[in-house]
Each structure stands twice: as structure tokens, then as C-alpha cells.
């Protein structure tokens, strides 16, 4: 059960700001989804069953090698920079970054 307190904590971690109506709806839906997960928690699982990160096995013969980490020039630098919400010349501007002074 996700209590209002736990919910607020998740919202903070998720970096979201919610209206009270949104928050109420979302918390209720989350709890409904958790009910649907009771079944998952109840499945008998032998210790020997490994987790699967994806379904298809990728044996070496069909797995492409990781490519070199190479620097490649882009022809789109200006177009990409233009999409930044706030620019100062070629720097992207953000509001103050919260920080603590180290002693």
C-alpha cells in the first residue's frame, strides 16, 4: 500500500510537481496496480531460475561487437544548440544549481 507519505517521497525522487487532483488519481492507480502485482509475488519460484534481462539470447555469433568509442563531427551543431530552452551564446543556461559548501 502506497501511503500519502510514501507517495510524496516517490514524487520528490521522480522530480515531479503534481496538482492535488493528479496526485490523488495517481496514488489510487498505483495502489490498483500493486494489487495486480500480488499475483507476481505469489508465484512459486525455484531458486535456480535466473533473471532474464531480455528474451532472446544473444550468443556471440549474432551479437555485433561494441563499436569503438570514437569522436565524430556533427553537421547539426547549430540546429541542436538552437533547441536549447535558454542559451547564452553557445552555453546552455540553467537556474541556480542547489549546492552545499564543503567545510
Amino acid at each position: 500500500m502506497i501511503t500519502p507519505e510514501l507517495f510524496d517521497h516517490l514524487v520528490e525522487l521522480a522530480a515531479l510537481e503534481l496538482s492535488p487532483t493528479e496526485a490523488e488519481y495517481l496514488r489510487q492507480q498505483l495502489n490498483n496496480q500493486l494489487k495486480a502485482l500480488q499475483e507476481l509475488v505469489a508465484i512459486p519460484l525455484q531458486e535456480s531460475i535466473p533473471p532474464a534481462l531480455h528474451g532472446v539470447s544473444f550468443p556471440a555469433e549474432i551479437r555485433p561487437p561494441i563499436r569503438e568509442d570514437e569522436w565524430l563531427p556533427s553537421s547539426q551543431v547549430e540546429a541542436i544548440l538552437k533547441q536549447a530552452p535558454e542559451l547564452d551564446e553557445r552555453y546552455i543556461v540553467v537556474p541556480d544549481i542547489p549546492h552545499q559548501d564543503l567545510e
Partner: peptide, 29 residues
């Protein structure tokens, strides 16, 4: 906004609809 965290929260709160928000919260939990 006062700082970066607040900018994140407001941007994501206004920019995402209910379904992405639901998935983010569930995924974190």
C-alpha cells in the same frame, strides 16, 4: 523558479501527461 530542482519538477509536472507520470512513479517504487 529558484533553482534547478524546482525547474525539473515544474517542467516535468507540466510537460508529462498522467500516463508517463504513473509509469515513472511505479518504476521508482
Amino acid at each position: 523558479v529558484h533553482d534547478l530542482r524546482e525547474m525539473y519538477r515544474k517542467t516535468r509536472g507540466e510537460g508529462f501527461g498522467l500516463q508517463p507520470k504513473l509509469r515513472i512513479l511505479m518504476g521508482m517504487y
